[in-house]
């Protein structure tokens, strides 16, 4: 017989509100059902309101861990990327969201955790340990992260340079990074608007990149950021012409 190896949930000992904000959070049965329902609704929404077309879905790795990295100019971005993942990926998919927007109050953090399965990234006062925790979670739980390496929504729709954080997650690991290009979300819901407009949205998924041989240091991180950034730029240009 297998030796007994009981592992309590990683978030054991946290109060409910601490748990929603924690990177250690592990979803239970009800939360999983909520994620699946939310995902189903979003899928129909994007199909009807934005006639979402996804190209290159076959390039997604067969299972986690991997990171989806895309350009960012709208709140719709993470949701659109989420719908690109089929049901079997969904359970392990975590959009990495800005802590100061999605996890500030108990109400928003409850919503972000229960409906979107999001994890917080604090843009101010975030030490290196925050990224180390995420890096560990990615590998141990074979997770799928949805990441926007620009570090915020572009206010004019043009891409901003990628930050190092992405490199800190994947340097010296076999975790693939899948670059994604999104077009149309800025026109549908730019940062200065509150309600989306029915504009069609296109998502192009590129070939997965691996950075096992890139050093886990500052130069390595910039190299990773630059590589992924140029891939995403190409994909965005490609989807505009396609």
């Amino acid at each position: 017989m297998e030796p007994w190896n009981l592992q309590p949930a990683r978030d054991t000992g946290l109060t409910p509100s601490e748990r929603f904000r924690s990177v250690r959070r592990e979803s239970g049965l009800l939360e999983n059902i909520a994620h699946q329902v939310c995902f189903l609704l979003l899928r129909s929404y994007f199909a009807i309101a934005h006639r979402l077309t996804i190209m290159g879905r076959e390039k997604l790795p067969a299972h986690g861990p991997f990171v989806l990295a895309a350009n960012h100019c709208s709140h719709l971005d993470a949701l659109a990327l989420g719908t690109a993942l089929t049901r079997r990926y969904r359970e392990r998919a975590f959009p990495i969201a800005a802590g100061d927007v999605f996890f500030q109050s108990t109400v928003t953090s409850t919503f972000s955790a229960i409906m979107l399965n999001a994890l917080p990234m604090w843009r101010k006062n975030c030490g290196p340990h925050a990224l180390a925790d995420l890096r560990q979670k990615l590998q141990e739980e074979r997770a799928i992260f949805i990441i926007f390496p620009e570090g915020g929504r572009s206010r004019n729709g043009s891409m901003m340079p990628f930050k190092h954080g992405l490199g800190m997650l994947v340097a010296e690991t076999n975790v693939p990074v899948v670059p994604c290009g999104l077009v149309g979300t800025f026109e549908a819901l730019p940062p200065h608007q509150n309600f989306p407009r029915p504009v069609s949205v296109k998502l192009v998924i590129g070939d997965a990149l691996e950075f096992a041989s890139i050093a886990n240091d500052r130069t390595g991180w910039s190299q990773i950021a630059a590589t992924v950034e140029s891939c995403v730029r190409d994909l965005v240009a490609q989807s505009r012409t396609a």
């Binding site: 009981l6 592992q7 309590p8 949930a9 054991t12 592990e26 239970g28």
Partner: peptide, 21 residues
């Protein structure tokens, strides 16, 4: 049951948890 399943790790077995619920 939720607390029990979380501390024992049984919550990761979705089918069994669903049947218990």
């Amino acid at each position: 049951y939720r607390e029990y399943a979380r501390i024992t790790g049984l919550f990761r077995e979705r089918t069994i948890s669903l049947i218990v619920v």
